[in-house]
Every structure is written in C-alpha cells, then in structure tokens.
Design a binder for these strands. Structure first.
Lengths: 234, 234
DNA sequence: TTGCCTTTCAATCGTTTGTTTCATACAATC
DNA sequence: GATTGTATGAAACAAACGATTGAAAGGCAA
C-alpha cells in the first residue's frame, strides 16, 4: 500500500525535525506511523535513505521561485521594491506561517545548521538558487556600480532577519513577553523587516513613501508604523 | 587529578558542539580526552550532567556585560551609538572571532536552536540578560515614545544579523564565493551591520556622519563604504 | 481453488549505547 | 611500613539501536 510509505515519510519528517537524525529512532518513527519496523527497510532500505527522502520532501518549500508562480517572468510588472517586499513576506510565511507544515522548515533549518553528507549536494543547490534569486532582486534595487560583496552582505542581512524567527524559535517564545507576541505575526514581521531593510538601503525617498502611502502591498497593511517619525531627529 | 576533569570537559565540549548530545558518544569523548570511560561517571555522574557542565562552561561567553568590563557603569562616556556599535562588534567577535574557542559558540547556538531541558532555565536567563542589555542600549538611541514591541523587533533584527554567520556557518562557506570571503571578516561585517542598522534607524544625519567621519570607533576602519552614496537616489 | 506477488508481522541478529563493578595503582597520613 | 582515601583501568552490564529474517496475510489473475 502506498499509503504506508507516505505515513512513514510524514512520521519520519516530524520526528527528524524534532530530534534530529540520531535522536529519532526507527522504532519510534514506525510506532508513530502505525506500521511495523520492517516497513522502513522495505520501502526505503535504510534509515539514512529515509532521512534523505524526508529532506527532499521538505526542501521544495525553500524556493524563491514561488514568487513568480503563476506569472510570466518577463510580463512581471512588479517593481524591484515590491519584489523584495514579496520575497521577505514569502520567507517569513515559510518560516513561521501556519500553512506550511512546521516540521518541514524545522528539518531544513537543521540541515542548514549542520549539513548531512547525504543531503549536502542536493540541499546546497536548493539554497543557492534561492539566494541567487534574492541577489537578482537586489540588483534591480541597487545601482550598478555597487561591489559584489556588498550585495552579498545586504542579502545575508535580509535573510538572517527572516530565518532568525525559526532558528531561535523556542528561545524567542520565552524572550518576547506574551503581551507583545501579537506584534510578531507574519504580517507584522513582514512589515517591520521590509521597512527596516528599505530604510537601511536609503530607499526612503521613493519606495518607502510608496510603501507608507499604501501603494506597495505587503501583508495588507494600510497604516504606517512610522519608524523614523518616532526616531530621534537631531 | 583535576586535570583529568578539565580534559574531559574540553573534549566533551568540542564533540557535543560538533555532533550534538546524541551524536557524541561517551566512549569517543573519553578517547579524545585520553581517559578511561569510567572517568566520566567518576567526575560528572552521568553523560547528561557532563553536557550541562559543558554548556555552563560555554555560556559565560554570551554576555553583553563584557561591553562594560573594566569600566564603571556611570562613568561610561560612550554615546548610545558607540555602545550599539560596540555591541554589534562584540557579538560578531564571539560568533566568528578566532579568540574564543569555536566549540563554545557552536554549543550555545545548538542550545538556542533546541533547548535541552537540563540547561533550559539556566540558559534562558543568560540570553535574557544579554537581550535586555541590547534593549537598554536601544532605549538610549530611540525616542521615549516608541512602543515596546518596536524595540523588540529592532533588537531582534540586530542580533539576527550577527548570529546568522554562525547559525548558517557551514552553508555560508559554500554560498559566498572564495574571492569575496575577505569581506566577511569580523571587521568588515561589524562595519556593514552597524552601518546597515544605523541607516535603518534613520540615524544617518548625526551618528552615521560621525561614523563616516571616523569619530566612532568600530573595527579601526577609517574609509567609508558609502552605502547610500551608491544607492539609487530618485 | 490454485498459484503468485506484494505487503505486513513477530522475532532475532550483531552492535553500540550509557552506566556500573571490582581490582589495582598512587599518594598522603598515621 | 601499614593504612586510608583518591584516581584510574579493564571488563562487563542491561538496554536500545538499526537491520534482517522467514513466515504469515492479503489481493488478484488464472
């Protein structure tokens, strides 16, 4: 039955994400899946092969290509600023959104922290294409003369802010006071990070004004948080 | 001999950081330490107790108090901007600097990603005090009327950029082209992140000008990277 | 029914795990 | 020199691990 294979893969993904490769025993995986221990050997061969399949099942989430799904690359009328805003929101949705299964992103973050030899090449390619997408978006925003390393630094400053909320997830739950937690939803964080990045890039005169005026769509917010209206202006 | 205990603790710290609690076997730890297996029981009781000791040995690194070492809190003449610049640099030095043992920060990041029940309370307290230090620095920079959640968002945007270079360390080595790698030293990153954050906070008119004029010390840099001089100005 | 192939199951394989035991070696104290 | 407390070492403990086996069960065509 194909259903058995799927159940194993799901249970394995959840447990691998929760406790890592060594922490999740084959017996517990099969117990959660409600199948016999031998099934993991029958369908996947070894536990390691099962792990690779679980990572491969989770990795497609981590794609910036989703930004362009349903659109033609050339016919895309979005401004570079809107593209960056969409990118940030897409990342955050994957990180802390409810739609995508939590275990998939957990497993991917685990693979980022310490790459498994079995998944290394495959996974590296996935992350690299995603990162290059962001670099291309930035090239539309930044002037041509900007040195290459600066693009990398800026890109990493952007992705780090997004990934941090899953990387340090358990810890943040305890650091952030409960009454402040509503301000750390996908919507709120997407708005904050986008505004933070735009402001850092000195794009306030044009893009952030559009942003504030509601001409850029990101999370359906209309009101402005007015970052630098509150900031000390000397 | 006290030396044996120390050797075990060091070997355990390195191996726990490398492969996690489950991945590092007690036999391998003792083999690396050059002691008998029974020594881990003799000095620490259980493997778990040894892990706790290893984390406790590594955690003191993660302190913002180091910013003020050798100074009197009240007599500190540094401006809030300089304090933030120092904070960023201190974090980065701990993350990717050569002075502090790499395994200590690896172990701490591992504990951040998935807190061990044994270390949870102890570790939480450590991170929290560090985070509150950053919040206090920000309060000196930002106006009084700014909402609390904004301070948290900004603080997290800052720490995420610093921690990211260790959290995704192995992966970044493959993403960043070799010829660009010199630009990702502690000095270069401290400068980039500080400037990125200052610019984002709208502190360009005062602090960043001082920064560019070399009046703020951070990493000994004198030349300006001139972020927004390169940025498209429409 | 019969035969055949796929799937599931209980039982067990050889390792490796963390932990413990007991005997020994060392150094200091009486 | 005998004794005591500390430290180390080789061996073995039960338990859990991943992997495998051979038999049983199920479905399906002939």
């Amino acid at each position: 039955m194909e259903d058995t294979r799927t159940r194993i893969l799901l249970a394995a993904g959840e447990l691998f994400a929760e406790r890592g490769f060594d922490g999740a025993s084959a017996r517990e995986i099969c117990e959660r899946a409600g199948v016999n221990i031998a099934a993991i050997n029958y369908y996947f061969g070894t536990k390691e092969a099962l792990y690779v399949e679980a990572v491969k099942a989770a990795a497609p989430l981590f794609r910036a290509e989703a930004l362009f799904e349903g659109r033609e690359m050339e016919a895309d009328t979005r401004s570079p600023a809107q593209l960056l805003a969409d990118y940030i929101r897409l990342m955050l949705e994957h990180m802390i959104g409810q739609e995508t299964p939590a275990w998939k992103m957990k497993l991917i973050m685990r693979e980022m922290l310490e790459p498994t030899p079995a998944c290394e090449a495959f996974f590296h390619q996935h992350v690299l294409t995603n990162f290059r997408h962001l670099l291309r978006i930035l090239e539309g925003l930044l002037p041509g003369g900007i040195p290459e390393y600066r693009k990398y630094q800026i890109a990493l400053s952007i992705v780090s802010q997004c990934t941090h909320y899953r990387a340090a997830g358990k810890l943040l739950e305890k650091i952030i006071p409960p009454e402040l937690r509503p301000q750390f939803s996908v919507d709120h964080l997407a708005r904050h990070i986008t505004e933070f990045v735009f402001s850092a890039l000195g794009l306030r005169s044009s893009f952030v004004d559009q942003w504030r005026a509601g001409k850029l769509d990101c999370g359906g917010y209309a009101d402005a948080l007015a970052l630098d209206r509150n900031v000390k202006s000397e």
